[in-house]
Computed example of a mutant assay.
Amino acid sequence: MDKTSQDCPYPGCFFCVMKEGNPSKRRSSILKFFRELPSQDDEGQVLPISGLWNTAMAHPNDPEFIDLGIFECMAALIWKGLKNRRWLSHDQNVYIPYYAAHVIGSYTMNMEEFAVSAVQAGVIPSLVELLRGRLTWVEQRVAVRALGHLATYANTFPAIASHGEILELSIQLAMSSLEIVYSHFYQNADRRLSYHCDLLTRGMGAVEMESRKAEEWASQLQCWSLQLINCFAFKSEFLSVVCKPDFLIKLPGMWGGLVNENSPAGIGLLRTICHHKLGRGPVANCSGLVEALCNIARSSDDWQFMAIDCLLWLLQDPSTCYKVIDKVAPALIDLAEISALGITKSLGIL
């Protein structure tokens, strides 16, 4: 190690480990660090975790930490925060479950093999507890993000689906996320948790910045919940849970906002639902929903084409055609008279 590492007052700290030039020593030191960190109660633990968060965000496809125990370590830290509230309230440990869940989500964002490793490491139960709201809405946000990534892959979706409460919790969160953030944070500026404010603004903003970022995070919480639900909606066996009237009717009003303008959000989920015969029935039975789809189809925004797909599938299905034709036919006739609908943007789930 260099002189700086030798002079470090905390031998074996994460930052010293990362400066190790010998690949074999570096690997064994990282392995030891991840294995021992959850059982330690030293002050300043948030520093290496926030460092890992930065690394995961900047290099989510880097495999270095994956087989050295990072997922086991992050899951253990989340459990520690859930079970040991005294530890959680000490020093700056309250940040750690948030960063730990974020690290899991970042490393499983693009690489299916990393997601498989995360599932094998047992991260799902700890993330589900955060999804339940065992801590606060900021941890719910990163938990639903991580679970959404794990649900994306064919090899890890069954593990997500085996936890039946994930779908129900995601539906509840999609419907209530805006109200949760408003009532638990936005509404009372003088009662906001300081660590929430720091996470939202990175310590660089006042009340106005906090409020603006909270609006963005609330929208992300809803969009990421919808992304997770969408993974279930591709499987017909889950449509009976997804296609509840009180949820379906709200989907057209769930949009990503300016911060998530490329997210198909509620209309994207409706398109997935309408692609299934089992999904078209509940949609057709919801009169207000069909009217909303007609209005979106007549609009000029980027969701127009998704709404048109939904209407066409409803009209082409003999079991739903007679229920919707009076509303759908006039909307499609109006559209047929337009020579060009314009060019749609490429929309994708966040």
Rank of each mutant, 00 (worst) to 15 (best):
A206K: 02
W53L: 15
P23D: 02
A233D: 05
L269P: 07
G148A: 05
A143Q: 02
A329W: 04
M1G: 08
D198E: 12
I333A: 07
E291L: 15
Q45T: 04
Y153Q: 05
S240W: 01
W87M: 01
N262G: 15
C294T: 12
W303L: 15
D41G: 12
G51K: 02
G44Y: 00
Q227Y: 01
S162G: 05
W87P: 03
S319G: 12
F247C: 14
Q187L: 09
L199P: 13
A284G: 11
S170Y: 11
D67V: 15
T320C: 13
H59S: 14
M57K: 14
V283A: 11
P125C: 03
P38Y: 01
K345I: 15
E215A: 09
Q40N: 06
L47V: 10
H149P: 10
G288V: 10
I349G: 13
L341P: 11
L200H: 15
R280P: 14
K235A: 13
D317R: 02
A206V: 08
C310T: 00
C310V: 09
G203C: 04
E237K: 12
E43Q: 11
D302S: 11
P11D: 03
L200N: 13
L311P: 00
I66H: 00
A331S: 13
E208F: 00
C243G: 03
G122H: 00
L135P: 08
L278P: 12
V123C: 01
E208G: 08
F15T: 05
F71M: 01
P252N: 13
Y186D: 10
M209C: 07
K213A: 06
K80S: 05
